[in-house]
């Protein structure tokens, strides 16, 4: 089973931060409070979209053919994601 990486708090929906990292080899643990990179803060669907966009060499036309959605639908999704990423960046700057 592929586990879903949690990005948002299940209790208050706030963005989660990383407080511990563990080395898979020697089990060394690093503690702190690390903010997730902007791309990691996107929802699973948005991350999938970014991956598809990258794999289709940034061609929205190719993406629309692959996903079976029209060009303006794919472009609108991209525009919405750009707006979302800008909002996340703004939030990070103000923190």
């Amino acid at each position: 089973m592929k586990l879903k990486f949690p990005v948002h708090c299940p209790s208050c929906s706030g963005i989660l931060t990383v407080t511990e990292l563990t080395c898979g080899n020697c089990e060394t643990r690093v503690s702190g409070n690390y903010v997730l990179p902007v791309l990691m803060q996107l929802t699973a669907e948005e991350q999938e979209f970014v991956l598809q966009f990258f794999l289709s060499s940034g061609s929205l036309k190719e993406m629309s053919a692959q996903t079976g959605k029209s060009y303006p639908t794919v472009r609108n999704r991209l525009d919405d994601m750009i707006a979302h990423i800008r909002q996340l960046e703004q939030q990070q700057k103000t923190k």
Binding site: S64, A65, G68, K69, S70, Y71, P72, T73
Partner: peptide, 16 residues
């Protein structure tokens, strides 16, 4: 898909 395409064909079919 067919039902959704009927409701909003513009989201699924190429403009041409």
């Amino acid at each position: 898909m067919q039902q959704r395409a009927l409701v909003n064909p513009f989201a699924y079919f190429a403009e041409k």
